[in-house]
């Protein structure tokens, strides 16, 4: 029975941390989007507007970079799976698209 290995080589390790970053994005986004509540009663000035849109843009850019990297990583994994055959890596043998 092919079990997922407990430790991975450098590449696989990077891939997992990339996924971790992708998971963290919405948490970060939520935290940043709740900032306007800290100054809720005073209304909002142009500064708050600029802050909100800057944060928003930053999140989009970050997600774009991460998504691109994750896709490249998934393709690499596909290639590895194709060369090493089924059952290689973290159970990717049962996952033909390899995009976990």
């Amino acid at each position: 029975m092919a079990r997922a290995p407990l430790f991975l080589a450098r590449q696989g390790y990077r891939r997992r941390r990339l996924a971790d970053m992708a998971r963290l994005m919405p948490v970060l986004g939520l935290a940043l989007f709740l900032v306007p509540l800290l100054d809720a009663n005073g209304g909002f000035g142009a500064g708050m507007l600029i802050y909100l849109f800057t944060v928003w843009f930053g999140l989009i850019a970050g997600t774009a970079v991460l998504a691109r990297r994750l896709c490249v990583a998934a393709q690499q994994q596909d290639a590895e799976t194709a060369t090493t055959g089924a059952g290689a890596g973290n159970g990717a043998g049962a996952d033909p698209e390899g995009r976990r």
């Binding site: 994005m25 919405p26 986004g29 909002f44 909100l52 999140l59 989009i60 997600t63």
Partner: peptide, 19 residues
């Protein structure tokens, strides 16, 4: 005021959390 933006922030959070 600024509240309208929340209608777009929710979907943004869901999509950047696509993983």
């Amino acid at each position: 005021g600024l509240e309208f933006v929340t209608i777009y922030l929710g979907p943004t959070l869901v999509l950047i959390g696509w993983w």
